[in-house]
């Protein structure tokens, strides 16, 4: 009987550990991270293959917050990240102008693209302070919102002498990557006379602070 109870307790312990995956760091409780970065280090970027030349663009005007319970990341993660369309740079001034024009992303009418977190799944703990996971969210662009799933990872750094040089408080580094189809967002994929790939790869690299 004692063996059976200890077996049940073991199963209960294991299932609790698995279901409540979170960071094993000094911080505890719910933490909110702000990703607005005046230095422009935080970036959203896109990659598109065209018949003539591959296009990479970056957007550095990122804003938004993410909050979660440190010990139970998967079930408590929520937040929204936005990037200003006017900050997108492709390295060619004329192409930037076309990208932000009414024929394409229409920055005047739809100044921001955003990702709002819905749920988290497939969480893997790769280090005490690092998690890999899939995040389902509503991605909005060009006035259209669609559900997407991004592959992401997050690294939690408790405040120390090195992190203080970047920003006060604990830091959270987030990487995420997902694909979208331009036609689903009512974007005509003709750009400066060239066809841009229907499928665009979007990625985000950002570091936020909880102070």
């Amino acid at each position: 009987m004692n063996k059976f109870i200890s077996f049940l307790l073991t199963i209960l312990f294991i299932s609790t550990v698995i279901s409540a995956q979170g960071f094993k760091v000094k911080a505890a409780g719910t933490q909110t991270f702000n990703f607005e970065d005046q230095s422009g280090r935080n970036q959203a970027s896109f990659f598109s293959a065209t018949p003539l030349e591959d296009i990479t663009g970056t957007g550095s005007a990122i804003s938004g917050t993410v909050s979660f319970d440190v010990a139970n990341f998967a079930k408590t993660l929520k937040g929204k990240i936005s990037v200003k369309v006017s900050s997108i740079n492709t390295g060619i001034e004329l192409r930037n102008h076309h990208l932000q024009s009414a024929n394409w992303l229409n920055a005047a009418n739809y100044p921001e693209a955003s990702f709002e977190i819905v749920s988290v799944s497939d969480v893997k703990q790769t280090a005490d302070n690092k998690l890999e996971f899939k995040v389902k969210g509503n991605y909005s662009m060009h006035g259209v919102t669609k559900e997407v799933v991004a592959n992401a990872d997050a690294t939690y750094l408790d405040e120390n002498d090195q992190t203080k040089k970047r920003a006060p408080g604990d830091l959270l580094g987030v990487r995420a990557k997902f694909n979208i189809n331009l036609s689903e967002y009512d974007v005509d994929n003709a750009l400066v006379g060239n066809k841009v790939a229907e499928k665009i790869e979007l990625s985000i690299n950002m570091v936020g602070s909880n102070k």
Binding site: Q43, T56, Q162
Partner: peptide, 10 residues
């Protein structure tokens, strides 16, 4: 990135 070695800043 010096703090987050997995991150690449463009």
């Amino acid at each position: 990135d010096e703090l987050f070695p997995d991150m690449v800043q463009k």
